[in-house]
């Protein structure tokens, strides 16, 4: 394991130097071996709590992930300092998610229903690749907050072609609060508090 980890670091060093990688504890080997089959698998990224125990998957290395970077700038529409509750405006309007959409619904049906609340600027009714039927959700964009909010209020929990649909904002101004984890902590955890650092916003 140590050799493999060293190889991983060497490979990572070949990458762009300004990229930070997901960090894995190197002192966790014996903890992993206790897990038996999980010993070959990659450790869980620090971004989730260490209570996740059942790991499966081949250890075949891992690409250095740019997503773990805390230095590279990721474009966002959120104003700094404006993170909070409530929906986030998209660049050209307000986007809502419709879930529970019937598999044989057609774009025209959705367009008709949701045009009652304002002009539908954009509508994505994505299809399941295996079957070609609707995957079960739609994303709809309105120009104004009021139109989107009216659609949510009128249609959430309501029937759309005999099936109950749920309608909500697609984007939020800030992180989801109260990330609840109902599982008990790992009983033999030797987790120092720093491992939870990735859970904090950056």
């Amino acid at each position: 394991m140590v050799a493999v980890a060293a190889m991983g670091r060497a490979a990572a060093a070949d990458e762009e130097e300004d990229v930070e990688f997901v960090e894995y504890d190197q002192d966790d080997e014996d903890a992993m071996e206790e897990d038996g089959p999980a010993a070959r698998a990659l450790p869980v990224p620090h971004i989730v709590s260490p209570a996740v125990v059942r790991t499966r998957g081949r250890f075949a290395g891992r690409s250095p992930s740019i997503l773990a970077s805390s230095r590279d700038r990721f474009d966002s529409l959120t104003n700094d300092g404006d993170q909070g509750h409530g929906p986030q405006r998209s660049i050209e309007g307000w986007t809502i998610l419709v879930s529970g959409v019937k598999e044989d619904v057609e774009e025209g049906d959705l367009h008709d229903v949701f045009s009652e609340f304002g002009r539908v600027k954009d509508l994505h009714l994505n299809l399941e690749r295996r079957t070609g039927y609707a995957k079960g959700y739609a994303l709809i964009e309105y120009e104004s907050f009021e139109e989107a909010q009216a659609a949510i209020r009128a249609m959430n929990g309501n029937q759309l072609l005999t099936k109950t649909v749920y309608v909500d904002w697609a984007f939020s101004r800030g992180p989801i609060k109260n990330i609840t984890s109902t599982r008990p902590p790992r009983p033999r955890s030797r987790t120092p508090p720093r491992r939870l650092a990735a859970l904090t916003p950056y």
């Binding site: 700038r73 879930s99 995957k135 079960g136 749920y166 909500d168 697609a170 984007f171 800030g174």
Partner: peptide, 20 residues
Amino acid sequence: TMIRKEVFVSPSVLREARRI
């Protein structure tokens, strides 16, 4: 140029990803 975007999604969007 590399495209790098980030946005917070609502709990409903996360639930839909879970469902899929």
